[in-house]
Amino acid sequence: MFSPALRRAGLTLAAITSLALAATACGGTTKDSVDHDSGGKGAASGAKADPNAPTKKGLKVAFLPKQVNNPYFTVADKGGQKALGQLGSTYKESGPSSATDTSGQVSYVNILTQQQVDAMAVSAQDPGALCTALKQAMKNGIKVVTYDSDTNPDCRNVFISQAGAEEIGRSQIQQIAKQIGYKGEIAILSAAQTATNQNTWIKYMKDELKKPEYKNVKLVKTAYGNDDAQQSFQQTQGLLQEHPKLAGIVSPTTVGIKAAAQYLSGSKYKGKVRLTGLGTPNDMRQYVKNGTVKAFELWDPAKLGALAAHAAVALASGQITGARGETLKAGGMGTFTVGAKGVIDLGKPTVFDAGNIDRYRF
């Protein structure tokens, strides 16, 4: 645990008291909030980046995933922990055990604000629910990075995106269409209905399906497993019972695709109903090798966490502010450019299949 001592001299009793109101009060844009929509400025009001500023040491950075003990976030946050160690700063992880406990996430943000961490990296369960609490954190000088799943842009400094959202969404439809021969019914098995990243990807999936080449591909349902293995397993079973002609399933969630693969591999649908989406090689290896899954995608979650850590330290060091066009130096990972609305893309996802999956261990 970080020490709850109030290290910043500028934190007054009034500011401390206001934390208790953060969960219920409607937070307006503060002087330290980020404006990413004014011609790509994206910087905290009055703040200017100094890319040559020294990297601060001893910073306290907290990772707040959507769900602790989720294998995906475990890998991502360990990547962040390793990067912070290399940067000379301190790591901590905290968060709810359920991927749908939005109020729990709000409470953790408020606690971290009270503890006066230097920066926090948050994967948001809901785009708007955390905003009041995050704006309070920024008002108190805490830098806010979102990763994996974003908030509204004015509620954080930068967002570390797994890859271009459009590319992820469209590529998953391209994958499933190819696997079913561009003909048949498909379904989407998502996480929570409020998950920002899932909904953005699904929007692009639906848009991709409007293209002429998919005229014989029909999306019949979007189901939600809430990033819970048992619920995702049951939702897969329900989809196949409700749609006996289903040709394929797209699951853009690591928990969902693994649960769906588990169900398919032990059913009469193995090798008949195609499954793709976003999964980790370690989770999906056995299902690729036994013929349940032909191919799926993902980025390296450890690199996602590492980039979030580099962004948090760079923000706290004054090297970036979140303005469009700024560059973020991330050690051996290279240099990244801040895009519109403070978004930093990790890069293109990797397609995993029987030919390459044994080369990856995460």
Rank of each mutant, 00 (worst) to 15 (best):
N140P: 10
A261Q: 04
A9P: 11
N152L: 04
T113H: 10
S107C: 02
S33G: 10
E93G: 01
K60W: 03
T90Q: 12
D283G: 08
A302L: 04
L346T: 15
Y108M: 09
L130G: 06
G141W: 14
K221T: 02
Q81D: 10
W299G: 00
D37W: 15
D148G: 05
E326P: 10
A5E: 04
V158I: 11
R359Y: 01
L64I: 14
D227S: 13
G169V: 06
Y214M: 06
G266V: 01
K143T: 05
P51F: 06
V68N: 12
Y263Q: 01
C155I: 00
S33Y: 03
T17A: 15
K56I: 07
I202K: 09
T151I: 00
Q162V: 06
T196Y: 14
T55P: 00
A309D: 06
L278G: 03
L278I: 14
G39K: 15
L304S: 12
S18A: 13
L19T: 15
V106F: 03
A20C: 09
Q262T: 15
D32C: 00
Q105H: 07
K56C: 02
A25H: 14
V220S: 03
G339W: 12
L209D: 06
A316R: 09
S94F: 07
N282Q: 14
K48T: 14
Q231K: 15
K210S: 07
A5W: 09
F336R: 04
Q172N: 11
K341T: 08
K270D: 02
A330P: 10
D207A: 10
Q230Y: 11
M333D: 08
G128K: 13
K329D: 02
K78R: 07
T335D: 02
L19S: 13
R359D: 03
V293D: 09
V145L: 04
E297F: 12
V158M: 09
T236P: 00
G184F: 06
D126R: 12
S18D: 14
A195K: 03
V343N: 11
